[in-house]
Design a protein around this nucleic acid. Structure first.
Lengths: 229, 229
DNA sequence: GTCGTTATTATGTGCAGACATATTCACATC
DNA sequence: GATGTGAATATGTCTGCACATAATAACGAC
């Protein structure tokens, strides 16, 4: 068994955990001890254990040492897709239609999520994304008009998502996933039966302290988000 | 502006990207150059840039250098929760009821996902998870009986998920999220209207090459998975 | 025994130097 | 022009050392 390189060490540690050499909740040897055993520098062991801790397999605390996680909260990393690229990546033709665009006061729920004063007006966009001509995603977006600058984009030509991606990228925010029955209006636009189960992504983004946008993406039935764990 | 420590460097790089000092798609200085500018070791810059690359903000290739991601595929990391802990974490009382347990040949879709030969029998469990006495999650699980060993657990007393977590932890697998309308049977068990939108998590897990389990978790309406980006 | 202080210790992070490795680019060849 | 080859180079990783930091454990005062 050749152990060299932090990935080998990561695998060996994982093997020992799975083999119950190191039981859940129990402490494992110190970095120094493992470095000695494997014949590598402590930094190399540190790298391996740090990765495993980030994955939720190990729990590490200064002085207390490293132990095998008792309740390994598995962490899945999802790629949040750009709709156009996702559709084109499946070999389908991407289409986009702006349905409505006005300036309006958002409902209280949206305003408070963005941390806006009452009465502030936002740009309200509704749009449909199509794959091979069939509607697959209904977008309902509230957008802070401040971010548009003087060169207000034409959201008929370019989707808000893509415009934001190139003009206000690298934002922070939160994202939520849920299921919802299609309302009558949603059903009509997405060309599905009323009450159909939609996969809904809610996303709110900021750039630093400045609110950018709050969007609800309702995916037509059949949509599935997948990842490896 | 004091820049020391890899987190400071990470922030400063992010600031420059947001400020458009470094445009999307453009290459940024080499690690060596940045190390010189910030007065730190290259390893420190490397750590900062590596983290940003893992987040999808930067793209790095040997020799080609580091560039700002053109289509920053945002990556969200979700904690995959243990149902009991999730419910108790909300301050609710957790309940669990095993509805059915038999040994059966799984449907072809399940068998092929687990990579099983035709005719292999699996343990089939159906269970309901409750919060404050109200059903919130319907579990439909196929389980490889090999993993049970001689001490076959009593799945009336302990949920399969928790038993697996303590007896076959640290597995790999894939996980998918989707929305589905409640079937008549599902609606009855979850005490919701037929056709209600359920948030469904499909999960398949292996331990190395050995298939462990394949489960469908149908969450009652109101369920929401959330994370920061 | 309880409480507060101090010493100890494992991890977290840093530095400088080195070699490995994957690409790219330039050049020579066909 | 197309293709293969080799040098150049930026990132990837490792080592060995050092100090910082946080949390525990040991100790003493009461």
């Amino acid at each position: 068994m050749k152990v060299s390189g932090w990935e080998d060490i990561r695998e060996e540690v994982l093997r020992r955990i799975r083999a119950r050499d190191w039981a859940p909740g129990a402490a494992i040897p110190t970095e120094e001890a493992l470095a000695g055993e494997f014949g590598v520098a402590r930094a190399t062991v540190n790298r391996a254990l740090r990765e495993l801790a980030e994955e939720g397999v190990l729990e590490r605390r200064r002085k207390a040492g490293t132990r095998v996680a008792l309740h390994p909260v598995r962490k899945a990393t999802l790629d949040i897709p750009v709709t156009r690229l996702e559709i084109e990546g499946r070999g389908q033709r991407y289409g986009y239609r702006l349905l409505a665009e006005d300036r309006d006061e958002p409902p209280p729920a949206i305003a408070s999520r963005l941390g806006l004063a009452k009465g502030a007006a936002l740009l309200h966009l509704t749009a449909l994304h199509l794959a091979d001509g069939r509607p697959v995603l209904l977008e309902d977006r509230w957008l802070n008009p401040e971010v548009l600058g003087r060169a207000a984009p034409d959201f008929h030509a370019v989707s808000a998502n893509e415009w934001l991606l190139t003009h206000v990228p690298y934002t922070t925010g939160d994202i939520g996933f849920s299921a919802a029955n299609a309302s009558a209006a949603e059903a009509r636009l997405l060309e599905v039966a009323e009450g159909a189960a939609l996969f809904v992504i809610d996303r709110t983004t900021w750039e630093g302290e400045r609110p950018i946008t709050c969007v609800r993406l309702a995916h037509a039935p059949g949509y599935r988000m997948q990842t490896m764990v």
